[in-house]
Design a protein around this nucleic acid. Structure first.
Lengths: 214, 214
DNA sequence: TGACGTACTATTATCGATAATCGATTCCGG
DNA sequence: CCGGAATCGATTATCGATAATAGTACGTCA
């Protein structure tokens, strides 16, 4: 396989590849990431590999022990549930802090909603997923706390959420219930009362997080 | 100044020193961290410096741009307030999720409380700070969400909190009000009703976060 | 004089090699 | 056959040097 990367800043590209492989399960939890093997695969020397690993270590995706290597710190079902708890907290916080939303925010959310519905109607699950992730990220953004937004990004919800939604899409009911649930959420956000919106949001995230239950 | 580090795993020690310097203001926001200068200071080559910087990049303490260096991403007062908001959220979550606490948790918290009181009575502010930070970290731990605990650690509350408390200790009322407030919080935690405990916790964090207001 | 391009300098990105360490295996005396 | 010391292979940690790049200072030409 040609995974050699050429253009710019090897360590960034390598880091992104490693993140994707860890989150999509290519690298299972506990796997040791051997620097020289990776270096050979990417056609680079050890240094950029190590730097990419150190960055992943900073985000908590891997752990390393001195002279004993770097290992994937798995996203097991426990950690996944905990992450959803954190995500739920952030999105609830945004609602409680900023509802009623200004027109601009509602417009952004509505655009995502429309995109979701259209993609779903066409049966295109990937664009649906893009819109859905954008919807929830926009919600966090609406809370006005930049640290929360950075945290959202550093937890790689763009990848994790995609994996979850793909699983749900392949299951019995597929994405149809989610579309309806988001529509309800959108209406409640527009209505402006926090409690019903929070309840609906909680239900949505509960549904999505079930993608990681056996 | 002899900042040369000798014993084990240079990159870890370097990383810790850099974290401390960033959080205590030695390295102001926006400062470019030059690799070769740091390498000379620590008597190491460029590689471990870079790895330490990459780890800091992962935690969000610095940012780097290709061929343009690594710069301190400042902890300005806005970010500080946002961080306290996040911390408050995590501690509230622990209370709402786990109150009433089991005897073991209450014992741990009480031990911290006792340590705080004794240190304060002796006028030793540093041990007081240790106990206070341990108290709040234990609170997060009591919530039972390991991801929250990791997040707490990755935000470096051990350093940030110390800085805040040192500032407060040097101000007018000093630490006395905090001791009393924690005693009240402890009583309310023991009582087992979430709402009053949350209110008191909010008041405490509000007080502490004022250390960063001008 | 002033806009423009070009060499220079400071700094980062990457390399290839060496030192340090760990884990397993082998070898040996009992 | 067994316990432990010595050794070997694999892997990580660090080094010193080189390549690549951005910003700057300067000189040239109109």
């Amino acid at each position: 396989m040609d995974t050699a990367l050429k253009r710019v800043c090897m360590r960034d590209r390598i880091r992104d590849v490693l993140i994707a492989r860890i989150l999509d399960g290519t690298y299972p939890a506990g796997l040791q990431l051997k620097e020289l093997s990776l270096a050979r695969e990417f056609n680079v020397s050890q240094a950029p590999i190590r730097e990419a690993l150190r960055e992943l270590e900073g985000t908590g995706l891997v752990t390393s022990e001195r002279y004993r290597g770097t290992r994937v710190r798995g996203a097991d079902s426990v950690e996944m549930r905990e992450s959803y708890e954190l995500r739920l907290m952030m999105e609830i916080h945004a609602i409680e802090r900023s509802l009623p939303f200004p027109a601009e925010t509602l417009g952004k959310l509505q655009a995502c909603m429309t995109g979701m519905k259209e993609s779903f109607a066409r049966g295109d699950s990937e664009p649906y997923i893009d819109w859905a992730l954008d919807f929830h990220r926009s919600l966090v953004e609406a809370g006005g706390n930049g640290t929360f937004l950075k945290l959202w990004d550093s937890l790689h919800w763009d990848v994790r959420g995609r994996i979850a939604l793909r699983r749900l899409a392949a299951r019995g009911a597929g994405l149809a219930p989610l579309v309806a649930m988001h529509e309800t959420l959108m209406n409640r956000l527009r209505a402006g009362a926090p409690a019903p919106a929070v309840a609906q949001l909680t239900a949505i995230l509960q549904t999505v997080s079930q993608a990681f239950e056996p």
